[in-house]
Design a protein around this nucleic acid. Sequence first.
RNA 1: GCGCCAGUAGCUCAGCUGGAUAGAGCAACGGCCUUCUAAGCCGUAGGUCACAGGUUCGAGUCCUGUCUGGCGCGCCA
Length: 565
Amino acid sequence: MNPFEPLQAPILATFDGLTEEDLLFGPSPKLELGDVALGTFKAAKKLGMKPPECAQAILAQVTFGSQVLSVQATGPYLNFKLDRGVIAQPVLSVILDEAGEYGSNHSGRDTRMLIEHTSINPNASPHVGRARNAMYGDTLVRLFRFEDYDVDVHYYVNDIGRQIGLLALFVDDIESMTFDGVLQAYVDANQKAEDDPEFAKQGYEMLAKMEEGDPEVAKKFHDLTDLCLKGQTDVLARLGIHYDQFDRESKYLKDPRLDTVVAALEEKGAVFTDEDERLVVDLSKIGHERDEGRFFVLKRANGSSMYGFRDLAYTIDKMEQGADVNLQVLGEDHKLYAEQLNLILKAAGKTSPETIYYAYILLKDGKMSTRQGKVVLLADFLDEAASRAGEKVETQCADLPEAERKAIAEKVAIAAVRFAILKVNPNKNVIFDWESSLSFNGDTGPYVQYSCARINSILRKYDGPVDCAVDSEFPLTQDAEWALVMKLAEFPAVVAAAVENRNVAPIGQYALETARLFTTFYHDCPVLIAETPALIRARIQLCRATLQTQTNALSILGIDALERM
RNA sequence: GCGCCAGUAGCUCAGCUGGAUAGAGCAACGGCCUUCUAAGCCGUAGGUCACAGGUUCGAGUCCUGUCUGGCGCGCCA
């Protein structure tokens, strides 16, 4: 949706050699200057002029249509005053017409994508720190599906490893065990392993039996990790996060494709057995330039494989599933590790997925620590947030049945967490503050939801359905209306940028800005009691278009636009 | 020590890939509910964009160095 088309076309027709990209349209910094501004920097360069000259040249030579009421050159800028209604009409028309698809550029048509995210260790309940991976990954999935990608979501289950070995040894009766029970058992088992070396050794033996394929041990590992996985995915499902496929690490223990990798490494002289009988890759032979992180261990002295060795097989497996785009979401602590894997795969003639990294979530008084109990569990936070939201819903939606009120409170809680995490650029640490995340005021998900609830409230009171046919004489004159329309027109570009940069944070920022502009409009421009029927009709359509755009933006973020709250 | 990421208002964050006088929210102060939901709105105050150089018509944004914080660097996953 390019609302500037009527301004652009006559300029392009007058000056040869200019393209759309040379014309930098945007809102004027102040509405007194104009409704829309054009920066002439790029165009000037192409035309061999200085920007202010270029502005003057456009002013002198171009004849604009009747939509343009006046043009003024201010240094390198041109400021246009427009017939706002005429410009706004097609914007609203497109939004109401495209409805749930408004904002999508459909860039993923006929494109298959495999994305792996979350993949947390089974022995922990998701806390908000780890959940950044899940929320970010899930939001990418939603973004790409919105763009018509055919997305397959994978979760890599670390179902083997020392921690599961200890657990399997410690736990007798899995049948009657709960997720919380397993978590406690893991803590106890670790303590026991620390106190009792013999027990620790037996843990490794369990692991060895698992690798050898002992059916009884395998079943125990499987049942334990299943229980854990269910506990974890239940919490994540509460946030609307779902997966298409769970890939068990144990499946990749003896993958024949690893032989070809090792053979390729041998051929390049990049693999050797060290003095402790470990099988080690020397990455300096295959492109790693520094000393740090030069060595990568594939197998222990006893022949059991390391996590990274199995991950090589898993990565190869993912890449061979025929997706056009492969993505994985990893914490920034995995940066070097992923680079090491990539080098090995490249040396073996294999490709690697594109990785999206995110920085850690910190607490106000430092980093999270499971050991010190300095964690915010996702489930705990959601419970507390839902309870606080519930108090408000109780007074504001007293007429609704209790079940419905509870559902609303839960959705507010989800919006609070998801938004708090997603609005921050992924390469920045998030400082998670319990209190401000529970306030629901200001820059929050609930604030955005609230603006939607207000729109819904107006639409409910408006008698009759909203007409999608937008009048050509669209009577919008107020600044608040204009600012809102311009913001709505931006949405497809915001989505396109998010796709290109694999960054969803700007969508959160966009929803926030739109909500703020709507609220200003809400206060400045009465809808249901506007002066004329035509104005009521127009503002209702603007409300409907805003709600549609926000619904689409929020759905990418995994947040529900609420009818009432 | 080496590598990657970051440093913007007291606090938490934006800043459209180099463009007009750097923007929000929280906290503070002052206003606004018999008028579409006050989870709200309007206003005031708050800045040497970590620091020092450089690149050019123009730098919060690009380059170099320094400082501070996060993460990582051979049998954890």
